[in-house]
Computed example of a mutant assay.
Amino acid sequence: MRWWVSIGIVLAVATAGIAAVAAPNQAPQSAAGDDAKQVDVELVLAVDVSYSMDVDELAVQREGYAQALISSEFLKTLKSGPTGRIAVTYFEWAASSDQKIILPWHIIDGPESADAVAAEILKAPLRRASRTSISGAINFALPLFEQNPYHGLRRVIDISGDGPNNNGEPVTIARDAAVAKGVVINGLPIMVKEPSYSMMDIENLDYYYEDCVIGGAGAFVVSIKDRAKFKEAIHTKLVMEVAGHTPPARIVPIADEHRPARVSCLIGEKVWQDRWGR
């Protein structure tokens, strides 16, 4: 079952301290006694840098992740887990062949390591690139878990972006392959501008993320529809992911995964074909 969460509701959830419900997917466990390699979550932050993102959005997005990781609420949540630490990596993506790791796997186990990770994320130059391949981002993320020397109780891919997949294989194929491996994909659709056909935007990007992008036990979407809430939304989403929160029952769940998508999962490819003929 997948869940939809508005930023207003999810902020209330996070600040109310609702008890976490750990997602049941389990990453492979390390050898007995290898506690130093155990973490609560292996978290991949996959961040859209396609040309549909303006420079201001790229900067706010980058700052939002960095600030979230050093926030007192995040660090408090971090210490509530079984090991009190997570492993995180951060990469930026555009086309199916265009992914760049900004932060290789790092451990966050307190303020000092969080500060170091935030500084590493912020120091890389901002960049933009062509096309939008969410499937490429998912496919790039999966091998990163195997390369991670740490072993998490959960494996999560956090995807942020402001448009649908229009390059590479269909996003549902990549999503389903990740879910089959026990990975949870959460989404952060960015909807702070009016949809523009010239920029390959679509209406109801949140529906697209809900129906076509996210997957796995407890997967959720936090949509950003107000530029002023950009950093706040990123912060809330990371806190929920580290805590293992799923939305409470009072939030209406998306219907089961087998119902027809409200937005075609190939809409990005169709818009690109209609505009460019290829």
Rank of each mutant, 00 (worst) to 15 (best):
T132K: 07
D201A: 07
A19S: 11
S196N: 14
A174V: 00
I202C: 01
V183D: 08
E42P: 01
A141H: 08
F140K: 05
T15C: 07
G64W: 07
Y65M: 05
A68L: 02
F230P: 02
K100Q: 15
S264K: 00
V222C: 14
N25L: 09
K37W: 02
V222D: 13
D48E: 08
E63F: 09
A20N: 04
I254R: 12
L144H: 01
K100D: 12
S96T: 05
S97K: 14
A23K: 15
V239I: 15
L69Y: 04
P149R: 06
V44E: 04
G182C: 07
L266T: 08
K100Y: 11
A129W: 13
K37D: 00
V271L: 14
D206K: 12
L142A: 07
V117F: 01
K231V: 06
M1N: 08
S30A: 10
P149M: 09
Y90W: 15
K229A: 08
A114I: 01
A243K: 09
A124G: 01
I173R: 10
S80L: 10
M240Y: 01
M1G: 00
R275L: 08
W105G: 00
C265F: 05
S160I: 10
D40R: 07
G84N: 01
I173S: 10
I157F: 05
M200E: 09
D201N: 15
G182W: 03
A116M: 06
I138Q: 06
Y197C: 03
A124K: 15
S72W: 10
E120Y: 06
A27I: 05
L103P: 02
P253S: 04
D48H: 01
E42A: 09
A219P: 06
G84P: 02
P104Y: 04
I159L: 13
V10E: 15
Y209G: 05
G8P: 13
